[in-house]
């Protein structure tokens, strides 16, 4: 089950034969990495096929194996393996268009809404492939909640925003129980003190940071096991961002959190593990401290030191 740390083994495997596909991938890489020295090219080809570091987690909640995603003819994600561990924050970093958002949207099947999207491979939650025929997408999304890039509260009251999920899933037998869920969700999202007097005012009237915490409260109100966050702070100012980051730290006691971020400082601050994506491949994954201090791959190093991206 658990594979070894195979960072050192990569070069044996990668060097065996350079296939046509790899040549094409290399071509694409050249286009993207204008600054990359051509002398390093052969290494890039080899590296691009394998994930450096250990992609497994000790007590994994979700396991993605050989996941490929296609948008029509566009091969957006290429055989990615990655585990999400319980009570950990794992951040996905990488330049724009590298597939990290696409990958996170596979984890709760939000890609289903895109007509041309096709997902191959398997993603296992609790021993069940979420892409199998029997899997129910509604249940999946209740177990794997999501917070989006831009705060998107419903144009309803603060209360109704949080109560919507519990209502449709029938989690609260009566009004009091529902009140209880709303309050505790808002408390855990660190928003209760600010909104307890205006629960029945529209959620869209809150500030951007408050709206995003409202969205987090809405996600945790249905009692998920995993929370996916797709660049949750990119539309927020530094103070609101700090607020959310503190909140993420707090939330990991109860949930597994997968966060996509463009800010390497943020990844360093909030996550225990970091995965670096590049052109649809998972290049490197490992403990955050390790990835940022001694990256195994030149690509990773160049990205985190700001040479491109």
């Amino acid at each position: 089950m658990k594979s070894m740390d195979n960072g050192g083994l990569v070069f044996d495997g990668g060097g065996l034969n350079v296939t046509e596909g790899a040549k094409r991938a290399a071509g694409a890489l050249i286009g993207n990495l204008r600054a990359y020295e051509s002398s390093r090219l052969s290494n890039v080809i080899e590296e691009a096929h394998h994930t450096a570091g250990d992609y497994t987690a000790v007590n994994a909640i979700m396991r993605a194996r050989n996941v490929d995603v296609f948008y029509g003819d566009n091969h957006a994600i290429k055989s990615v393996n990655l585990d999400v561990g319980a009570n950990e924050v794992i951040s996905l970093i990488g330049p724009s268009g590298c597939g990290k958002s696409t990958f996170i949207r596979c984890l709760n099947r939000m890609n289903d809404t895109i007509e041309s999207a096709r997902v191959e491979g398997e993603i296992v939650l609790d021993g069940e492939n979420i892409y199998s025929r029997e899997a129910d997408v509604v249940l999946l999304r209740a177990r794997v909640g999501m917070v989006f890039q831009k705060p998107n509260p419903f144009p309803k009251s603060v209360y109704d925003n949080v109560a919507y999920g519990p209502r449709i899933h029938g989690l609260a037998p009566d009004r009091q129980a529902l009140d209880q869920i709303v309050q505790s969700s808002l408390e855990r999202a660190g928003l209760w003190a600010e909104v307890k007097d205006r629960l029945h005012y529209p959620g869209t009237g809150l500030s951007g940071g408050q709206q995003q915490r409202l969205c987090i409260a809405r996600a945790i109100a249905v009692g998920p096991e995993v929370i996916l966050m797709d660049e949750p702070c990119s539309a927020l100012d530094p103070i609101a961002t700090a607020h959310i980051e503190d909140l993420i730290d707090e939330l990991k006691k109860n949930f597994a959190i997968v966060i996509v971020t463009h800010s390497m400082q943020q990844a360093r601050r909030v996550s225990q593990r970091t995965a670096y994506f590049h052109l649809g491949r998972l290049i490197e994954v490992g403990a955050t401290s390790q990835v940022f201090s001694e990256p195994r791959r030149k690509l990773t190093e160049d990205y985190i030191t700001g040479r491109f991206g």
């Binding site: 509604v138 144009p155 449709i168 996600a219 249905v222």
Partner: peptide, 27 residues
């Protein structure tokens, strides 16, 4: 209707029908 509303509803586990009738339709 902005797609973010649909995503928000689907994200908390609403079925397509619920997302449309509870959130998209009123807008």
């Amino acid at each position: 209707v902005p797609p973010s509303i649909r995503e928000a509803a689907l994200g908390v586990g609403a079925s397509k029908m619920q997302a449309i009738f509870h959130h998209v339709m009123p807008l």
